[in-house]
Every structure is written in structure tokens, then in C-alpha cells.
Design a protein around this nucleic acid. Structure first.
Lengths: 162, 162
DNA sequence: GCCAATTCCGAGTATTTTACTCAAGTATTC
DNA sequence: GAATACTTGAGTAAAATACTCGGAATTGGC
């Protein structure tokens, strides 16, 4: 599990895709313009997202990308994993050259820690983010003087989602 | 919040330090030998750890590094933050050049997500890892036929820690 | 059938980060 | 004063990041 700006770009792009998925296929040019990510870079990211079957492409004019499946099925961890390959960063990969098991101890420890973060991000889906996004939109509109008094089911505690 | 191999190296080194902190100052040469991390690289990492007041140095023969404070006071997040500077990876840093707030939405969203991971790692201290490490050590020794029957208070459920 | 939009694909590249080497200097203990 | 170990700084090779560019393939609309 690696957490870099690359994964951040991918999550942002996927979220943009999720926000506009009901308007037909979304072109990378649109995402590029909206999110300020280079088109060619998006192409590379989506090549991996496609390879991992998180999105499907529609070629030709009016084409673009669609989510493969529902937003409730795609987790943040999947997106991050798709674009950033996992690496080991240890010399001892089960080769048994650790003195007294110490190296392996910290090694496994970090792996477990990494797995925990992975699990954490696996529990958050695009749908969760979209829902939360809606809340922020509502909030923004409320800040702009429009006070609506109906957010009963859309009012989900943020702390419950994230 | 960035999660790369650099932070992993730092956590491993700090954990090694925590494991041997009761034997006086720990030299980087020892950590280097035990954990297989280059001495010069450790020097760079510990320069930052020192700057962030996570460790203190003891110069001269028999010197090395000590933890600044107790293992219960140092979280994984602190260690990771110390060695990896945070970056933004967005063009709009509050400059207001986001159309209709969309960019800022995903932007803030990711920041909150990152903050959640940060909080997650803030809740895990070196002491937690040492305790967990002891458990594994005990297990290893048990595998080696030495069965000790005293782990009453050191026996903390792993799932409770991580 | 042609054209334009769009995905696809590969090569190349500048910048940054990573992980490390080397060398000199400083403080401390024995 | 010599050995130990931190401290500092310069430099560097490899990898990852974040693109650019050029072109090819696909397809909807005219």
C-alpha cells in the first residue's frame, strides 16, 4: 500500500467520473479541464484503471469512460492499488537472512500496518464520497443564503462515513 | 500525509530504537546492521527525526540516539510526518480558481481522507508496536520450544492495537 | 465514405524523490 | 589524544512522477 499524489490524482479523477456518470460517458478531456490534470497523464492512469476493470471505455465521438459497476462497488483502496504498484522495500523477502528474526518482525509489523490502512480505504467507496460531496454542495448552497430545511436523509454524519 | 518506503524505513528504525532504548543510546551503525538500512540514509532520516524532536542524540563513544520521551508519546504518524514533507498536488491552493467549487470539493475531500489516515496512524504509538512485537517474539520463542507462561499483561489482543 | 472526437499506445523527457556514497568536521569518552 | 559517534554537506545513480508528443484505432454523425 502506497499513498502518493498519484493515487490522489486517480481518486480525484474517479470521483469526477462518479459525479458525472449519469450524463453518459465522460471524456478524459472533461476531467482534465475540471480537475486540472494533464490529459496524457489521465490516459496513463485510466489505462491502469481499465486494466483493473474499474472503468470501461467507450470509443469514438461522444465516448469516454464509464464506471465498471456501481459506485458502491468501487473502493478507494481499489483505485489507489490500481495506479500504484506495491513494492517491498526490504532486502529480506522471506529469504531467511534476518538475524534473530528481528528484521522480519518489523517487516511483518509494517505489512500489517499497511494492511490496516488498506482495509480502512477498502471500507470507503466512491458512493460514500459522492454522498459526502452532496452534503458539501448543500452546505455551500446554504452558505449562499439558500437555506433548505429538508436534509433528513441526506444529512449523514461525516464522521460515520470517513 | 504521504505513505512511502521512506516512512517505512523511519518507522522501522524508530521501532528498532524503541526495542533497544533500555540498553542506553543506540548507534545508527547498530540500526543499520540490524535493519539493513544504509548508515548514511539513516543519518538523513534521523536528522529530521531530531529536528522534529522525536529523538535526541548523545555524542561521543557509547553514544547514539535516544527516544525523546516515552514510547507511548510517539505515534507512527509523527514519525512518518517527520521524514516525509507534505505536498499539495493541486494547482488550486485556496486561490479561488476552481469552477463552481468542483475542484475544491474533491480537493477538500481528499484532504479529509488524508486526515483520517493521519488520525488512524496517530492512534498507534511505538509502545503499541513494541508490545505487539513482544508478542511475536514470545511466539517465536515458543516456536523454539521455550514456553514461558507469564504473559498476562503483555498479552494484548493484536486486533485491539492495530 | 469522410470527418472529427475520442480512446489507445509507445516513446521520450524534465523534475522530483529515493536511497545512497563520500568526505570532512565536531563533540565526547576513555 | 585517540577512538567513537554524531553532524553536515556535497554529490549521485536509480526510480517514480508528471507530463509531452506523435500517431494509430475506433466510431458516431454528416
Amino acid at each position: 500500500m502506497r499513498l502518493t499524489t498519484k493515487g490522489r490524482y486517480a481518486v480525484t479523477a474517479m470521483l469526477d467520473l462518479a459525479l458525472h456518470c449519469d450524463e453518459g460517458p465522460v471524456s478524459l478531456a472533461d476531467i482534465s479541464a475540471r480537475q486540472g490534470i494533464s490529459l496524457s497523464y489521465l490516459e496513463q492512469l485510466f489505462a491502469r484503471l481499465r486494466y483493473f476493470k474499474l472503468v470501461k471505455s467507450v470509443r469514438g465521438p461522444g465516448g469516454g469512460y464509464r464506471l465498471m459497476g456501481s459506485t458502491t462497488d468501487i473502493s478507494i483502496a481499489q483505485v489507489v492499488d490500481a495506479v500504484s504498484e506495491s513494492l517491498d522495500a526490504t532486502r529480506c523477502e522471506g529469504k531467511g537472512n534476518c538475524h534473530e528474526g528481528e528484521v522480519c518482525l518489523t517487516h511483518h509489523l509494517w505489512e500489517d500496518l499497511s494492511a490496516q490502512i488498506h482495509q480502512f480505504l477498502s471500507d470507503i467507496t466512491l458512493a460514500d464520497l459522492v454522498a459526502r460531496n452532496d452534503i458539501q454542495s448543500v452546505r455551500k448552497r446554504q452558505d449562499l443564503r439558500v437555506v433548505s430545511s429538508h436534509n433528513d436523509e441526506t444529512h449523514i454524519a461525516i464522521s460515520e462515513i470517513l
